[in-house]
């Protein structure tokens, strides 16, 4: 689509608000953050120092892994449930959908609290497992606890988008594939997933970015696994290491951006390969 020459000034006017917001709340503070990161005793090599510090590097890797696994799990669970909920009409369906999206408004603290109720030292999982097997199942403060918490707040962010996309699936496509001999699994792989792909990428990106930046859940669980936002918090408030905190923040932004970029181009290249 090319723009008419007459439309260009109009377009510029329409875009002014977004430029203003972008500059005031994003570009200026970001520039400042970049400078702050370089203002410490290490100067601009603070970024390298951050990567070379094992504690920081591990925190970065753990955060990326946790976010990626959470995103994948959330997409799989929401994809299956979303298609099912869209296809089936049953009593209590509306209630179920609104319950699934209920955690949207919860801050991370509440999510962390819920995980502790489930799998903490006095949690439900412990009581049940003690009664059944005699072993005490406590995982709230481990990677598993974080994962459960992250998954819990990720699903509502994904499922509505996927349900909307599932509604637009053309049943004739699936029927055509089946008439050609495709099994259920082949129909999912060749018809449903490709059709849901834009929605999977869009909601997966939001899910991943949210997980990368999530703070409250990890903070409440007070685990010994430091996710990156926790590390930033520690450097900033406890160690007053402002340059390091700033450098870590920039890293968080860049890594998230790179991960999303890779995911998007991988998804794009599978389209190109199939065509």
């Amino acid at each position: 689509m090319s723009l008419d020459r007459k439309e260009v000034p109009l377009l510029a006017v329409m875009l002014i608000p977004v430029f203003v917001v972008f500059a005031t709340f994003f570009l200026l503070p970001m520039a400042r953050l970049v400078l702050v990161a370089g203002s410490g005793e290490n100067g601009m090599s603070e970024y390298l120092t951050v990567i070379r510090t094992p504690r920081h590097f591990e925190s970065l890797i753990a955060t990326v892994l946790l976010s990626a696994v959470t995103t994948l799990a959330a997409l799989v669970i929401s994809g299956i449930s979303g298609v099912f909920l869209e296809r089936n009409r049953f009593r209590g369906r509306e209630a179920l959908i609104s319950m699934l999206t209920f955690p949207l408004a919860f801050p991370g603290v509440v999510i962390g609290f819920l995980v502790i109720m489930l799998a903490g030292r006095q949690g439900l999982a412990k009581e049940i497992s003690t009664a059944l097997t005699g072993t005490r199942l406590v995982f709230a403060y481990s990677m598993a606890g974080l994962f459960v918490g992250y998954l819990y707040f990720s699903i509502p962010r994904v499922i509505l988008t996927l349900m909307a996309a599932a509604e637009k699936l053309d049943p004739a496509l699936e029927e055509a594939a089946r008439s050609l001999g495709a099994s259920r699994w082949q129909v999912i792989r060749d018809v449903i997933v490709p059709a849901l792909k834009p929605a999977l990428i869009a909601s997966g990106a939001i899910c991943f970015a949210t997980a990368m930046g999530a703070f409250g859940t990890a903070f409440t669980l007070a685990t010994n696994i430091d996710v990156l936002p926790m590390t930033i918090y520690t450097e900033f408030t406890l160690n007053a290491n402002i340059a390091t905190a700033a450098a870590l923040s920039i890293m968080l932004g860049i890594v998230t951006w790179i991960a999303l970029y890779i995911a998007r181009s991988l998804a794009g290249s599978t389209v190109a390969a199939a065509a």
């Binding site: 004739a172 029927e175 055509a176 594939a177 060749d190 018809v191 490709p194 059709a195 792909k197 065509a275």
Partner: peptide
Amino acid sequence: FQSYALFPNM
């Protein structure tokens, strides 16, 4: 089918 039902990703 009336709607052709061709796979758009292929």
